[in-house]
Design a protein around this nucleic acid. Structure first.
Lengths: 126, 126
DNA sequence: CCGTATCCAGAATGATACTG
DNA sequence: CAGTATCATTCTGGATACGG
């Protein structure tokens, strides 16, 4: 079924959707339209540069649209498109899975690390 | 809802799940257990190093298990765990979305690129 | 067959400062 | 407010060769 994901187009879209911020940005915009600085506050660790890159990419892929409101001072609003909205459910399901299984995964990691180094109490987290 | 995804644990799990190969490896293992070289054939562009890294990570996170079959020559089998299986549905939904919307996204990209450079026929694909 | 070791190029990201 | 520019750094991932 996923043969298409191995050619260049498929790989690129997959990589771009699942880059460091896209999923979280999309989720934030699914809830409601947001301004640039609102997104920055919502995603504490993102730098303006990374956020711009991410938003441009989502815009280019047709998942997000950028609206310049000609107010003073300048305001810009990002909102999910209809195409982006079709991704909402799968996206939410994946994020929910991650949140719901964080502790189980953490337990699995501990077991794995202990088995690999039974004597030393390593503090590796990578 | 996704507040947990902004701390270190959540971010790391998110990044590791959505690294370059994890999703495709997981999908392959959902279908059936596979040997190392089977995975390499299934994912044409992956190098042994990248595949190893990916598999170790999935194993550490408890999503995949590694079984050494003491045959001769040595055989190793990777299979999805019960925890990994709980991710199957959300995962399939996301991959299906990508496959189903590749063409729409491609169209969106063309429009975006044309609007940004109306005169020159740029061939950018990144 | 199943990886690991080493080296390295390029991408992704961050820090910081600055502009319309 | 909403970014861009620049520089430094980190990190991923590929190429290649070798080891258990």
């Amino acid at each position: 079924m996923t043969g298409m994901l191995f050619d260049d187009e498929g790989r690129r879209l997959l990589d771009q959707l699942f880059d460091k911020w896209s999923l979280l940005v999309l989720e934030a915009l699914c809830a409601r339209p947001r301004r640039f600085h609102e997104l920055r506050e919502h995603l504490p660790a993102v730098t303006p540069k990374s956020l711009t890159t991410c938003l441009r990419r989502l815009e280019r892929n047709g998942l997000v649209e950028r609206l310049v409101l000609s107010t003073d001072p300048l305001a810009v609003e990002y909102r999910i498109t209809r195409l982006g909205r079709t991704l909402e459910e799968p996206l939410q399901a994946m994020l929910r899975w991650v949140v719901d299984h964080l502790d189980v995964v953490e337990t699995a990691r501990s077991h794995y690390d202990e088995r690999r180094s039974p004597e030393e109490r390593s503090t590796r987290t990578s």
